[in-house]
Nucleic acid binder design. Structure first.
Length: 290
DNA sequence: GATCGGCCCTGCCCGC
DNA sequence: TGCGGGCAGGGCCGAT
């Protein structure tokens, strides 16, 4: 899904449905699901047995479930197609079921389902990061996200302007600000009337702050609507989809009229993916970083 | 050190 | 109807 709003929807579901529960049995059904756990899937499953999940945390697109003792956590990343579902044990196995946790209370299972296997699970030590937070070691390089109360807007602007690249690359860089992916980058740039290739090094600080504000606003709005879903792949822990796709102005809107000026939105190749923009509102800058 | 392209996967949709 | 190519919301790794 999974950009910040969608991952936060999942985090809230996990906090409600699995916090306080003790793992009776864990199974890892596909090796790629545990490839970030160095000792492998069997080791991961064995180490989870008997551990109690205390809460559900998130930074950017990373989720983690701190375990009793609070010195380690089960880390999850959904990748492009991952789902964490809380379902009755009698629910038939999904085609792409990659891992399963059953709990001592005999209630609903936690399932990791992932078609494309870009996502994964790992057990990791919790460490202090350099911004005063406690995160899994494998997440320590990820910046705080714009919805995090500890996010430093001024520092983001300074670091952005030290980069020599295009605005969208910088928005997607999870070590600068986390949680923003292809959808919300395009939506924030559209709202700010900025081109994806506009240079980071010459953007006025006030314009940069504006762009950050739009990124924050668009992700907050998406979160309020349960996230963005184009199809059944992107769901909360109960398998339900969000509604924000109805509010997208640019992303995925090729040939549709720009909601501001009416010019057709264009799709352009970008980093082996796509970028969508309005050719009128988001003019190509002279010194673009292609 | 910073930046960027390639690549890891599966499935769906479209055009031929 | 069948097949091949392109594309999909991410991030790590290695080359430059």
């Amino acid at each position: 899904m999974p950009e910040l709003p969608e991952v936060e929807v999942v985090r809230r579901g996990l906090d409600r449905w699995v916090a306080g529960r003790t793992v009776e049995r864990a199974e890892v059904l596909h090796p790629r699901a545990a490839r970030r756990h160095e000792a492998g899937g069997a080791d991961l499953a064995q180490r989870l047995r008997g551990r109690t999940i205390t809460t559900a945390s998130r930074r950017g697109k990373y989720l983690w479930l701190p375990l009793d003792g609070r010195d380690s956590a089960l880390v999850a990343h959904l990748g492009m197609s991952g789902q964490l579902l809380v379902q009755p044990a009698e629910t038939p196995d999904q085609t792409h079921l990659r891992a399963r946790l059953a709990f001592t209370d005999g209630g609903r299972e936690l399932r990791f389902v992932d078609q494309r296997t870009f996502g994964g699970l790992a057990l990791d030590a919790l460490v202090d990061d350099d911004t005063g937070g406690v995160v899994p070691a494998s997440v320590a390089h990820i910046a705080r996200d714009p919805l995090d109360p500890g996010f430093d807007d001024g520092e983001w602007v300074r670091r952005l302007r030290r980069r020599q690249t295009g605005l969208k690359r910088a928005l997607l860089d999870q070590t600068l600000a986390s949680g923003i992916g292809n959808i919300y980058a395009d939506e924030a740039l559209w709202r700010a009337r900025l081109h994806w290739a506009a240079p980071t090094e010459t953007i006025a600080p006030a314009r940069a702050r504006e762009l950050l504000g739009h990124a924050r606003d668009v992700m907050s709005s998406a979160l309020a609507e349960g996230g963005t879903s184009f199809d059944a792949l992107y769901v909360n822990v109960n398998g339900e989809s969000g509604y924000f796709d109805r509010s997208l102005a640019a992303y995925g809107q090729a040939d549709q009229p720009c909601p501001r000026c009416g010019r057709p939105i264009v799709r352009e190749a970008f980093m082996n993916r796509s970028s969508y923009r309005c050719p009128q509102c988001q003019r190509t800058p002279r010194n673009a970083h292609r």
